[in-house]
Design a binder for these strands. Sequence first.
DNA 1: AACGATACGGAGGGTGTCTCCGTTTAGCAA
DNA 2: TTGCTAAACGGAGACACCCTCCGTATCGTT
Lengths: 187, 187
Amino acid sequence: MISVRADAVRNRERLADIARQLFREKGYDAVTMDEVAKTAGVGVGTLYRHFPTKESLYDAAIQAWVETVTAAAEKALAGEGSPRDRLLAWFDAYVEFLTRHKGAAWRITSALGDEGSPFAAKCRTYLTANQRVIDTLAAEGAMRSDVDAMQLCRLVGGVAAVVDNSELEPEAARSMLTVVADGVLAG
Amino acid sequence: MISVRADAVRNRERLADIARQLFREKGYDAVTMDEVAKTAGVGVGTLYRHFPTKESLYDAAIQAWVETVTAAAEKALAGEGSPRDRLLAWFDAYVEFLTRHKGAAWRITSALGDEGSPFAAKCRTYLTANQRVIDTLAAEGAMRSDVDAMQLCRLVGGVAAVVDNSELEPEAARSMLTVVADGVLAG
DNA sequence: AACGATACGGAGGGTGTCTCCGTTTAGCAA
DNA sequence: TTGCTAAACGGAGACACCCTCCGTATCGTT
């Protein structure tokens, strides 16, 4: 019985780290696989051995922060203020997550209904977090009853994608999120 | 003095027509310049003579229907019903425009703030149409006072982009647009 | 009919993703 | 330690795009 080779593990982690850094600085399209491999000091073959496609590399690169989404939802809900304030706090956090890596918002929001996407697992996490927010606020009677998590994910994801793409200021994002929030809160 | 050659005019029109058809069927990314040229029975060189970039070809392909946007805004505003109904009628029309060609919604919405984009002229048309809608409804006291055309374009464009990308049913688009409409109407 | 400006065609340059396979190496066993 | 084998490595190159270049063909004028 042979365990997983140590050099392979090291390379995998280093590749994901370097990719994370590059994607974050330059965005998905502007980073090439050759560049990632060269920066890591390995051949492209090695990179592709660990991550069979560029998308799967991207998926691994953004994995870490996705894992904190659920906690962020809880935190926003536990905050003080009106339901509207807490909903906006969640939206802010969600958009901040999605725009942390250039190009991530659109890619993830696009994958929302697609089970075959490399981001399918991430999408489920997001949907669950949004559902949690909806359920909590609905229990307080603050939410319109016909809002579902998928719809909310798409709405806020759409805003995030636009904000990311046009490199808008936080205030611009805020005012769009306000519109969405007022639209989903009980009239 | 030599007039424009007739074969050039014919080719230009045929290329735009064929491109329109292909883009509409398959979306921007799935259509290659070689394919357009081959379908039209000309060399790629000829295609590039008429349209120096793929984006400019796309721009020409979607030109025709952009020209009817202003009329669509007027029509929605002139309709019967509450301000909310008329706003929704405009949103429906706008999303229908943006999603008529796969990939158009995202490309155009992305170009909204970018004067250097090949779509800059189209964006101005859209912004003007939205401004017209805002002004009209604001005059009736139905609109929140802090809504501007750019913001509305981005919100509705974001919804259109998501709808287009995930190939959602009209009802799904409708329910998201309802949220946006309720968010921008005077509370 | 001859001529010159213009348009045409498609080979090929540049850049990106991804594959293939000969070479190297880590980890286990004797 | 030493030998063996499965696994990992590296990078040339296949393939697919967008776009350019320039020799050839054609239109419209004279």
